[in-house]
Structures are given as C-alpha cells and as structure tokens.
C-alpha cells in the first residue's frame, strides 16, 4: 500500500506515532522516526522495523525549533532521496483548569503542538512542491473539535492544527499535495493508561462503539490518507473516535 514511499513521522518513539511508524513500515514505507527525548525508545522502533526487513532510521529534533526542523527535513531528503509523506504526530500535554494554567504551560503546548506543525509543514513543502506530489497528515484530536475541560492549551493547539490543515490544503492543492487531519478519540496509550477506572467507565459511556481505540486504529487511518487510494481527499478532519463526536 505504501511501497517505497519515504515518510517522516514526528514523535514516533511512543504511542500513536510509534504505531504509525511500524504500520507504515509493514506496508512497505521507508520511515524516518523522529524523537525529541526518548532516544532509546526511538531506536527500539527502528530496530523492530529493520528486524522485519524494513528501512528506517531515528532522527532527533525538537519540532518547536525551526533550526532543528530544517536540519531534520534536509537529512531525511538526503537519506531517502525524496519525502512523500509527513505525519505530524508529536505532541505534549500540560493539563490544568484555565484558572490554574500557567503561562509557560500554555506556551509549551502551543509551541510543540501548533507551531511545530507549522514549522514541519513549511520545511517539507519545498521538497513536495518540487516533486509535485506529497501527503501531509496531521494528528489532531477529537477535543480540538469538541473542547475539553482542563485542556485549554491542548484544545486550542489541536483546533489550530485543524485550521492550519484546511489552509495548507488550499494553498498546496495546485501542486499535488494533500493535507488532512485525523482526530483521534480515546486511544489506549501511556496517557490514557494513567486514568482512574471510574473516569474510564464514564468515558466509555460516551463512545457509541463502546470501546477505547487502539494506536493501530489511528495508524490504519493514516496509512489510508498516505496512500494513493485517498488522492481526492484534502482539507478534511477524519474522526477516529468510535463515534464519540459526530
């Protein structure tokens, strides 16, 4: 499905990003596994891909730094000879009620989750415009659509990503580049693993499909958006949330 496509996945050492990197590699893609802090985890992902006969390498970059991002994209293009797909997945949380949220927690989340997507998109666009072809997939969040108490910074960033997705889609469509977002609902990762059972069962009641999603639910949706099968889709936000928000 993704044979020989060269892909950069940000924040690919853990959780959803890790699942996307592994899933894409299983489907034939060459994968650049970006990480910021967890080098060992990123190397595990690379090793797993290589053990299964795939192509991958790990690359460190703080996506909120334009210098890091420019160097990362340059390295990926040098390594793979092209850059067909960018998956903007890296993200952080600094949850708190609005009244208690510190300015630095607001800035940190906006810088990584929103500005980071702007910087990586800008950096890959040059290469994709030359190729007259490219796919950009932004991992937003269902709370960017619905809002969520305690996550003003995260929600603002994710809603921003959805707006950025639509604008980039309009600007780049004439050059064969599609830009779409995925809005995951509750996906079982380290993040949701920490929640109390009471809160979990409460959440389950709001999900029509009555189960939490798995990282591979997001990975398979991303693979579809990266594949030639989705060439007529751009500027969209695909909800992968068990029907939570319709």
């Amino acid at each position: 499905m993704l044979n020989e496509k060269s892909v950069l996945v940000t924040g690919a050492s853990r959780g959803i990003g890790r699942a996307i990197a592994l899933y894409f590699a299983r489907n034939g893609a060459k994968v650049a596994v970006n990480y910021s802090g967890s080098e060992a985890k990123a190397n595990e992902v690379v090793n797993e891909i290589k053990e299964n006969g795939g192509t991958a390498f790990a690359i460190k970059a703080d996506i909120s730094s334009s210098e890091d991002v420019t160097n990362m994209v340059k390295t990926v293009v040098e390594e793979f000879g092209s850059l067909d797909v960018l998956v903007n997945n890296a993200g952080i949380t600094r949850d708190n009620l609005l009244m208690r949220m510190k300015e630095e927690d607001w800035d940190a989340v906006i810088n990584t989750n929103l500005k980071g997507v702007f910087l990586t998109t800008k950096a890959v666009t040059r290469q994709m415009m030359k190729q007259r072809k490219g796919r950009i997939i932004n991992i937003a969040s269902i709370v960017g659509v619905s809002g969520n108490a305690g996550q003003a910074n995260y929600v603002a960033a994710k809603a921003g990503v959805i707006g950025l997705t639509k604008t980039a889609a309009k600007e780049l469509s004439s050059r064969g580049i599609t830009v779409n977002a995925i809005a995951p609902g509750f996906i079982e990762t380290d993040m949701t693993g920490k929640l109390e059972e009471g809160i979990k069962s409460e959440m389950l009641r709001s999900i029509p499909l009555a189960r939490f999603g798995q990282p591979d639910d997001i990975a398979s949706a991303a693979a579809f958006l990266a594949s030639d099968a989705s060439s007529y889709i751009t500027g969209q936000t695909l909800h992968v949330d068990g029907g939570m928000v319709m």
Binding site: R126, M129, K130, E171, S174, R175
Partner: peptide, 9 residues
C-alpha cells in the same frame, strides 16, 4: 503567488 515562490526556489 505560489508560482513566484517556486521560481525563487
């Protein structure tokens, strides 16, 4: 505008 950006590239 996009053509000009590409030309510059």
């Amino acid at each position: 505008s996009l053509d000009v950006v590409e030309l510059v590239m």
